[in-house]
Design a protein around this nucleic acid. Structure first.
Lengths: 203, 203, 203, 203
DNA sequence: CATGAATGAGAGTTCATTCAT
DNA sequence: GATGAATGAACTCTCATTCAT
């Protein structure tokens, strides 16, 4: 019994090691830089070994996405603690953007990359994402309930705010922010966030 | 005399056929799916033939991007005709989003795809993009001048609106809109656009 | 008749232009740099046109070799004028080496490059080469006749001297002279030539 | 235990097989005729397999060169044993030429072929070559020290002798010896060697 | 459990050559 | 006489994946 457990644990550790290496490569060299061979090299195992822990490359990819989703959830945790829904909403937005700018690769993985999204294999990640999203919508609803907004369409409000945040981060992640001079970018992001908050307050 | 013209036309047609094939592949299988060999196969020519029309792969890519940029500009032309700046601004936004939803592949090419952006070879496309963007910012400024906004920070207003529109379209293009049931998506997009317009009116 | 002649002349001019371009490319980028396309580009004609003047690539190659052989012969002409056989022999050697060091690419073409030597197409070049060589052997023989050498084996003497000169030049042309520091190379070549002359005088 | 050894041996055998095939192709079709695909075909493996044993094409080339250098050194070993410097020098020359005539392809590889000579990757071969050359020069020096030569310029003497030997072998390797009828070639080589030795004795 | 050897497919490119026009 | 379009084969190299050991 203990043996089985240990084996199980060791297996999990190996999977994690593979994931860590993959994530590392992903951050360093982008999507193209992640190849089975590269991962194998990084963890100092043979390419074949990878297949003992993951069926194929896409499985690693999904696991990576899940990992990113979990990290993102953790990043929003501090915001979740705020009781006041309006403050909480602002904090969520701030942290969401912060996450995206701090971990562009992970954000990319979650919200931009083209991947076989439809595949059911990615369920875990999907569920996690939906939970986070639900929590966001609920916070908007709470704001409505507490009369922070006159509008009562929680979904549209949430979607609109998300559009802004996603658009903002995406421009950084995929470098369309180059439209603006480097020294103004950060300030612009901050100002735009303030502006959307102020705008939202009028809803 | 006519011969030269015909030849010229045929050459142009061939270039277009290559571009069309490339775009098609791009839509179907994403950037990775576009290979010289693939294109060649699609148009039923040998791989070498492609090189008679485009120097290398990236040139095809740039041509594609330029084409997309031109189409997008054309798509926004009708909006440009409106005299009233506030109405013009709304029209620009509407058309921008409309373009993105109607031509997700082109939008992707322009605003999402990872590509050798820094390369100067893509100058034409870049210039075109900047012109369009400048026109957008000028319209915002015109709105300010005509007292449609109290805020006078044209750049931030423009950026914020762009963030929203880009975020919205991006979710469709890269299928993160799957978070929402299919039958609600379009309505949500419309509602969100209305909402951002209403919000903007309070600036 | 005049027309035929003009045509003939024009054809010859074109062949020469092709050859010049080929030679130019050969000098600039080495053997690999000479491709039908490259030549065509250089003379601003289409690749197909080349085939109207030369059957295939190897024919150009042979013509090039002949050209090189003629240039080399011309280079040795001044030596041929000397009456005294011993002085003439020295001059031939000096000029031979001089030619090789000044035109390493041509020397390569003539004496080093692997080519379908056996092919009869190269006859012209071959004949020219033999003539030059015969003249060299005759000069050795003349030295013998005038008692500059005690040995009477003209062939072996000629061959030995040629070995030295060819070895010397070859080391430069194919860069095995790198064995020696750059600043000493030229001096070494000169000294060695003096040495072989002095040695020869003892024969 | 034995397994590791066997694997190691098998790997080495495979590397050797690749090298042999490469050398074979090299002999048959010259440098241009050696391609990864060709080698793969020759050993009846897939092209990719080659890359499991050699990083890239140039590595194979370097390995080949090194092998040739080692064989050549071995070929000269017997000469090295002779105590008398003058006899040793003659033996070195004889063996050098003998090596070149017996293994024209290897000689070509070492002393004629155009290759990325400057590359440091070829260090091993380079070092080996320099050692051999140093030994040769030292022998000349020893001859000087023992008054076999009056001249004291070891470098020039060595270089001159090398020029002769290299030129002689080169003519055979690159077939310029065709200038002479086949039945005389060998004799000519022998005679010329005798002649250069006799000449050297007068230095 | 892990390996290492191997594969087949595919990438972007270049080339000599042909041929209808 | 000249062109330009096209081909097919070749090039080096990388990759995900499989499988006997």
């Amino acid at each position: 019994m203990g043996i089985t457990q240990r084996k199980e644990r060791e297996k999990e550790e190996m999977r994690q090691r593979i994931l860590d290496a993959a994530l590392h490569l992903f951050r360093e060299k982008g999507y193209e830089g992640v190849s089975i061979r590269n991962i194998a090299e990084a963890i100092e195992y043979s390419p074949g070994t990878i297949y003992l822990y993951y069926k194929d490359k896409s499985e690693i990819f999904y696991a990576l996405q899940y990992e990113a989703a979990a990290l993102k959830r953790d990043h929003l945790l501090s915001a979740a603690l705020l009781e006041n829904p309006w403050e909480r909403l602002q904090a969520i937005g701030r942290q969401y953007i912060d996450f995206g700018l701090k971990h562009p690769d992970l954000y990319d993985l979650l919200f931009i990359i083209r991947s076989p999204m439809e595949s059911i294999e990615n369920q875990d990640c999907w569920i996690l994402g939906q939970a986070t999203h639900a929590f966001f919508v609920e916070t908007v609803q709470a704001c409505i309930d507490h009369r922070y907004f006159k509008s009562t369409d929680a979904d549209t409000i949430a979607f609109t705010l998300w559009c802004h945040a996603h658009g903002l981060v995406s421009m950084f992640v995929r470098e369309r922010i180059r439209m603006y001079p480097e020294e103004r970018r950060e300030q612009l992001a901050r100002d735009s966030f303030e502006m959307i908050i102020k705008m939202a307050a009028t809803l």
